[in-house]
């Protein structure tokens, strides 16, 4: 994939030193990275900018990973979330009915596995987004709007989905 290295990643973890090193490595590898240290910060960031993949720690003070994920998806429905969890909490995350995550990874996560998962998540995001985008574009075209109307509707859609 040509845009593989421009994947926009949103990191959310209260362990600041971990995020520091992780974002440095991801940046060096060509990812676009935004580091945030709490759920609230992540939600703020998502309101300002589009991301492809969020890497969210499940256990955080204040807003936890499940809640953060829910809020992020509300703002950006196609954003894929990779949830990092301590051992044994996968079950609790699943039981709470939050099966929205693209994947759960065990902490401490293996870097190569994380990068591979981010790429897969990005692929899925593009697929889901493209399908929905085409569907809506089709709807607009069938709606019988004039050329100007279509252009405006498409512009709105692009804004919603964050695709060019």
């Amino acid at each position: 994939m040509s845009d593989q290295e421009s994947i926009r990643v949103l990191l959310v973890d209260d362990e600041e030193t971990l995020i520091e090193y992780l974002s440095k490595r991801l940046l060096k590898q060509g990812f676009t990275v935004k580091a945030t240290f709490s759920g609230e910060e992540a939600v703020d960031a998502a309101e300002k900018e589009h991301y492809d993949v969020a890497v969210v720690d499940l256990k955080m003070p204040e807003m936890d990973g499940v809640e953060t994920q829910k809020r992020l998806k509300k703002i950006q429905p196609f954003l894929q979330c990779i949830v990092l969890t301590g051992h044994g909490s996968i079950e609790s995350a699943l039981e709470s009915g939050q099966q929205e995550a693209f994947q759960y990874l065990l902490k401490p996560v293996d870097y190569d596995a994380l990068v591979a998962t981010i790429r897969e998540a990005h692929k899925k995001k593009i697929e889901v987004q493209d399908a929905k985008f085409r569907e809506q574009v089709g709807e607009i075209q069938r709606s019988g709007l004039g050329a100007h109307g279509i252009r405006k509707a498409l512009k709105d859609l692009r804004k919603i989905y964050g695709v060019e």
Binding site: Y21, G86, K107, P108, Y111
Partner: peptide
């Protein structure tokens, strides 16, 4: 212990 381990892993990677 998992948390510091994760940091050590990332730091060495960097």
């Amino acid at each position: 212990i998992n948390n510091p381990l994760a940091v050590i892993g990332e730091a060495s990677g960097w």
